[in-house]
Amino acid sequence: MAKDIVAGIFCCVGTLFFIIGTTGLLRMPDLFTRLHPSTKCDTLGACSVIVGMAVHNGWSWDLLKLAFIVCFLLLSSATCGHAIGRSALRRNIPYWKKKEANEDGHGA
């Protein structure tokens, strides 16, 4: 029973981070600011749901696979964020400025 409660708490925290990440992805004004909530959503949200599933699972060899997924997600989401941001920088995607935002929605 205690196991289920801990797993549930982890799942709720992960879902909360997912909702925050979605909001950030929709509401942020340009790509570079959008990268920030999205990588948080990857690492914190996905990892806490998977850790919750590991608690739900208990001790078995499947923990190894779950740990592999968590480690891989922690490494890969940071790398993906860096790669996307760098490609945007090299392609000269304009930054968002507050003044221009009043004239046209995206600041581009």
């Binding site: 997912f18 979605t22 992805l25 790509l31 959008r34 949200g45 996905a46 997600l73 996307i84 945007a88």
Partner: peptide
Amino acid sequence: TTQDRVLGVNIVGTKTLV
């Protein structure tokens, strides 16, 4: 921009993974 789309694919993929 296309980078936005790639970012969206990454996010949707992570959610699908979960």
